[in-house]
Structures are given as C-alpha cells and as structure tokens.
Write a protein that binds this DNA or RNA. Structure first.
Length: 200
DNA sequence: GAGATGATTAGCT
DNA sequence: GCTAATCATCTCC
C-alpha cells in the first residue's frame, strides 16, 4: 500500500513529520530490494525556516525541487560526501520538506550491509541521514523522483505511534540557523536503537 | 571563473 | 570529544 500523493499535500510539515514515523520506506535499485520503517525525521518549514535551503523564498536550480508539489524526493549532497533523502511536501510553491534521518531495516539487510561494507548488523547501519541514503542505495540520480515510483516509495503498513512514544527535540547540525535551530522540529521514536543520537 | 561552505560521519585520542 | 574528509552549489568578481 503506497501512500497516495494526497498524503504529501498537507502544509502542516510538523504533523506530517510525525505521521511518517512508522511508515515503511523501500528502494528497488538495480533489482536490489531493501527498506525498513522510519524512526526519525526532521521538518524543514519553508521560507520562514532559517535552516531550510529555501529560507526567505530563495529559489535556485537546486531548491527548485522543494517548490514542487509534495510527493517527490529531494536528494542533496552535503559536505561533499553524504547524500541525504528528503520528502517534499505541501502544495506547489510552498517549499517544505522532511529529512529522513533514520530507519529500522526490515528487508534486504544483507544488501544494506554490502553497500556500507559492513559484516554484521549494527544499529548505526541506518542511523543518520547520510547512512540511510547510503544503505538504501539512494543517490542524486533519484533526485525529484516520485514517491510512488518503482525505485523509491513509502508504504503504510498500519504501524502507528502515539504522541507519548514520539520525542520532539531541536534539530541537529543546523547551529548556523540561529534561533531557528532551537525549534523542536526533530522527531523520533523513543527508545528505538536506530535513532541517530542517544535517546533520552 | 574562483573561493567559501555545509540539513555529516568515521576514526582516533 | 575533536577533527579531517571532500565536492556540488552558491555568491560574488
């Protein structure tokens, strides 16, 4: 059951970030099928969020993706090394996105191990946005791809978390965003060992 | 066309 | 805890 595009058209990026926890993210790259469910997300709230690439209505060749209609992937290279997977949400011309920071792998674990040159399953295999993208075989060739495509998609398998299972804390790695760095836009499943920073 | 920099991670101390 | 790695993109000249 892939999520319909209508799911992504909501403007409430905070609400959507929480709803994505427990959803299943899959990739099928070069015939290799792998994925798991999402346990950590971060919201990027459009033009008023200093941590967002689209802050102040900035529009460039790269950020153009975020202004599109929700339901596609925004994949971005950071620090020259790490690729990150974002989910574009909101109607067209509202540049909001959700960063997928961590998943719990359920399918194709050995494929992910191979992609990360690891021998045994350790929690850090998909902890952190760079790790998630690498483990799933995601790279910038998939930028702007539909989340209902055959290579990358998100499913609802009925897993739900209640508010008291979800932690809301400040984001990571966005200190340059000044006061907006303190906004509680990071969400994760309490106690899940695949979350990228220690649980509280 | 050149220079600065980041939505991070891994590895060493 | 601290720091190096490493390059696409943005910003100015």
């Amino acid at each position: 059951m892939k999520l319909p595009q209508s799911f992504y058209l909501d403007s409430d990026v905070v609400s959507l970030s929480k709803q994505l926890l427990g959803k299943y993210l899959f990739t099928s790259i070069n015939g290799l099928f792998s994925g798991g469910y999402i346990v950590e997300t971060e919201a990027y709230n459009g033009t008023i969020d200093k941590a967002s690439h689209a802050f102040g209505g900035k529009r460039t060749a790269r950020t153009e993706i975020m202004y599109k209609e929700g339901g596609i992937a925004y994949i971005y290279l950071c620090y020259g090394i790490h690729e990150m997977l974002n989910v574009v949400v909101s109607p067209e011309d509202e540049p909001r996105a959700i960063l997928i920071r961590a998943i719990e792998p359920t399918i194709g674990v050995d494929i992910m191990l191979g992609r990360k040159n690891m021998e045994t399953l350790k929690p850090n295999i998909t902890a952190g946005p760079g790790s998630v993208a690498k483990a799933l075989g995601i790279d910038r060739k998939l930028n702007a791809i539909s989340l209902e495509s055959d290579q990358l998609w998100i499913e609802d398998r009925g897993l739900r978390y209640t508010d008291d299972q979800i932690a809301e804390v400040p984001r990571i790695g966005v200190a340059y965003a000044q006061e907006d760095a303190l906004l509680p836009y990071r969400f994760y499943v309490k106690g899940n060992k695949y979350v990228s920073k220690p649980n509280k």
